[in-house]
């Protein structure tokens, strides 16, 4: 199976008040296209930092990261932005919708950035899939948390990403809404054949993925297949 993401000896350090703080320490793993993976670990273990590096949101201090065969750590920020626009989708804990854009416009933005034409129908179709066809003209502030996350999902899938990164996608939602959102993520993921990498504290959610990587103090302490992997 084709490798969509691979990390080799990735470390991330920050300078703070003259001290070097190592947030990630020599992380190496690779992810097959179409698979699902959860990164788990206690607070401060480096999960979100790792996600940021994998998605090209930040540069590693050492080591190399390849996404879709493109070495991210050698690209400028603008080039990484292009890579994100072409291959990556995002779902955030706090939804991160643009507050001044309507739901429909939020979904359209990644496609517009690509310079694609006739995108409105596709965006409406995606909103339809997440059950928000009639809320397209509402602003984020006029939507509930669950609805905002569904818009965020539609946006994440709008550019047909090769890989989807989700940072605590249900962290801000109640149990019932969380369940619906998780189902939606996995259904859409399956339908689109996208690779899914999610960061979570939620063991139940993690166990729905095919593989779990555990981090502790910036180090990878385990990398195991789950039962769900057998289904995949």
């Amino acid at each position: 199976m084709e490798t969509i993401l691979s990390l080799e000896g990735v470390s991330k350090m920050y300078q703070s008040a003259g001290n070097t703080l190592t947030v990630l320490d020599h992380i190496s793993f690779s992810v097959d296209a179409g698979s699902t993976l959860a990164i788990v670990g206690p607070s401060g273990s480096g999960k979100t930092t790792l996600l940021g590096l994998c998605a090209g949101l930040d540069r590693s201090s050492s080591g190399s990261i390849y996404l879709h065969n493109i070495r991210l750590d050698e690209l400028s920020e603008d080039r990484r932005a292009q890579v994100r626009n072409l291959y990556v989708g995002f779902i955030f804990q706090n939804f991160q919708l643009l507050p001044t854009l309507t739901a429909l416009e939020n979904v359209m933005v990644p496609l517009e950035l690509r310079g694609e034409k006739n995108i409105r129908l596709r965006a409406v179709d995606l909103l339809n899939k997440v059950g928000l066809a009639d809320r397209g003209h509402h602003y984020p502030a006029q939507l509930s948390g669950g609805e905002q996350q569904r818009v965020s999902l539609a946006r994440a899938f709008s550019n047909k990403p090769q890989i989807l990164f989700a940072d605590e996608p249900t962290g801000n939602l109640d149990a019932e809404t969380s369940e619906k959102i998780v189902k939606l993520i996995f259904d859409l993921n399956k339908e689109a054949g996208t690779t899914l990498i999610l960061v979570t504290h939620d063991h139940e959610l993690a166990s729905k993925t095919g593989r779990i990587i555990r981090l502790k103090g910036g180090k990878m302490v385990s990398d195991e297949q789950t039962i769900a992997a057998q289904v995949e």
């Binding site: 932005a81 994100r84 626009n85 995002f90 991160q96 643009l98 990644p110 950035l113 946006r155």
Partner: peptide
């Protein structure tokens, strides 16, 4: 930051 995340260039 969201726009940058979605692929907008700095410029």
């Amino acid at each position: 930051a969201v726009l940058r995340c979605l692929g907008a260039k700095a410029s």
